[in-house]
Design a protein around this nucleic acid. Structure first.
Lengths: 204, 204, 204, 204
DNA sequence: TATGAATGAGCCTTCATTCAT
DNA sequence: CATGAATGAAGGCTCATTCAT
């Protein structure tokens, strides 16, 4: 390289991390090697290992960074809201999360699947599901959401959103998918339907 | 060298496929090479390539085999049923599908994620979602399920089931998860709650 | 295959040999495996080894077959000719040999180069050069050709013809090449120019 | 692991290239794998690919290196010669070129034949024939050589020299071969013999 | 005898990781 | 600290050759 760019360690680490995010997002996990990332970060290959002990560590770091950023963003959004408009919020957050997922592109496969993801699962407090669980807790406490089992429902609704993004990415109509996703969430969190079991019984 | 075991091509292919399923299930995609599979199948490495042109082809074959088997199984179950007890069926199939997923173990990551899955997506007619769509179509036609958008809802409910299996695999309580999964499906497919939108409306 | 075709061993061997010639000619040594040849010969792979101990043996057999055929052809041509028109004959044979070489296509590289050729050189009595040597011997005896060293000249003139075919194959103008080849041969075998050494001396 | 030897890329590349030349020369293309070369170069196998994208690229590099070296050498020899003694020069260059070829040993087959040679032919400006063509051009311009067709004659005379080396390598007497080769070249480039066509006519 | 399934050594190529400078 | 050359374990794939049926 032309000239050494001396940076504070944290800045350099951040540059590498950002480069990794860009490269992973664009090219996906395949065709993305350590060298691709350091090249994108305009630093030397060996430098990578100054900041990340192994390749998997990078992946974990990327994942955690994204999740933390998302969580922080979420917190920001509701930090100053005195009274949440729950159902509006739900739709808004659904859209937002799906948009976020779509934006991840190839990154998603890289950090949420593959060996790194399997061997080093997201810590609970970081997971998207736990964010959702937070929302559910408050919403239920506010008496707006039905009293579902929070942890499991959060996980499963998260899967719905996640799957919605995949569906859109794979070519399904965005609005259709969004509509169905919203429907599932609304139905799941809405109040119990009074006569739910009867109509079917009759139908049979 | 052990004695040669000469088999009809179909049988040998099947043996290799079965070996692959076992190995993949137990060890996951990492730590599973062509040689591991042929060793498990008690045949020579080179023989692998008589039956599968590339490693990815094997993965696709495994995936298709599993999906086809599941679909066939499903068809079998309802082939002779004159009158479906829809809500019972729903619960039963939910349990069954989740059990199936859990049983896949490391196989799931191997064949539904990773390069092979990305570059060679499941053909539509084979996908689990399309099976679900079939069920939805009939259920809606029978007037039991709400008139949801079939394709997208099928995909998203599939994600719920899939996520449920993951959740259980990752240590969450099986019954808890199952209950929430059932709840989401029931709510999604159940009749519109007459007053559903009111409480929120008032809340706003 | 549909039905076993039982052939006399010699016929079968010949079929395989012919198939090899066709395949080698068309595809060259790369991309030509034992199986390609047996497929072309419409027989089973294992049958190959009934007639040729190794792959290299096939190559040698092909080479010898071609050379023998050429030699026989040559003999035929002059068997009944009472009086050879030497210089016409020279030109005719030059053309013929080059045409033969060109016709070999990929075969040439396969059988006259490569490991087989290196480790198992053509036996002297079979070589094209030895045919040429025969011609030279007679021509010199007839007092038509200059008294060159027969063995070495034959080899080198053979290289000229061989090179001429290569040149044409690689895109040079056929007539141009033929003319130069003829010129070299004529000059080499023609009578000593009386004043040969003087002009250059003067020129310097 | 032996101690790491860190070299400037150009130096290392050169070491690998030289090692390749040695190994290829001694053992020929068969029985020479990437690992043999890196072993000879006292470096790790993987390092090979820092300098040569593929095996064939190495072969091409070796070939070009040899041809360039020879050409440079040739140029050097005549850079400072004011007046060329053409016929002496011819004999000298014949000897030299044949010696060069002989020295190549197994290298010749490796780089001038085989898949690499077929798929990536020598660029024209590098070929030995083009060097010869240069010589012919000047010699003809000087009025010393007969006005032959330069390109084709160069190619064919090159084949003579090349064949001469092969002949010597295969056991023919060196001096005999050289004498005949010289004769062919002299005759080809010498002045037209006055009565060339008559003697034969009479002889018949 | 004919068939084609089975064998396994061989080989190129990739790339995370290390470390001399 | 930064650099990028060096390392070497993997691992996919080929194909001549063997041999059970």
């Amino acid at each position: 390289m032309t000239a050494r760019r001396r940076l504070a360690p944290d800045d350099r680490r951040r540059e590498v991390l950002d480069a990794a995010i860009r490269v992973l997002r664009d090219r996906g996990p395949g065709g993305c090697r350590v060298e691709d990332i350091t090249a994108e970060a305009r630093t030397a290959k060996g430098n990578f290992y100054r900041y990340f002990a192994t390749w998997d560590d990078l992946l974990v770091a990327v994942r955690d960074h994204l999740l933390d950023a998302y969580r922080e963003d979420l917190a920001q959004r509701y930090a100053s809201v005195p009274q949440i408009e729950w159902w509006e919020t739900v739709d808004e957050e659904i859209d937002r999360f799906i948009a976020f997922q779509l934006d991840l592109g190839g990154l998603h496969e890289a950090v949420f699947h593959g060996p790194a993801a399997v061997e080093r699962p997201v810590e609970k407090h970081r997971s998207a599901a736990s964010m959702l669980a937070g929302l559910l807790t408050t919403g239920i406490a506010d008496g707006v959401f039905a009293a579902v089992d929070i942890d499991t429902t959060a996980v499963l609704l998260f899967d719905v959103l996640h799957g919605a993004a995949d569906a859109i990415a794979s070519g399904m109509d965005r609005e259709e998918v969004l509509r169905s996703a919203r429907r599932i969430v609304h139905r799941t969190l809405g109040p119990d339907p009074p006569q739910r079991q009867q109509a079917p019984d009759i139908a049979l």
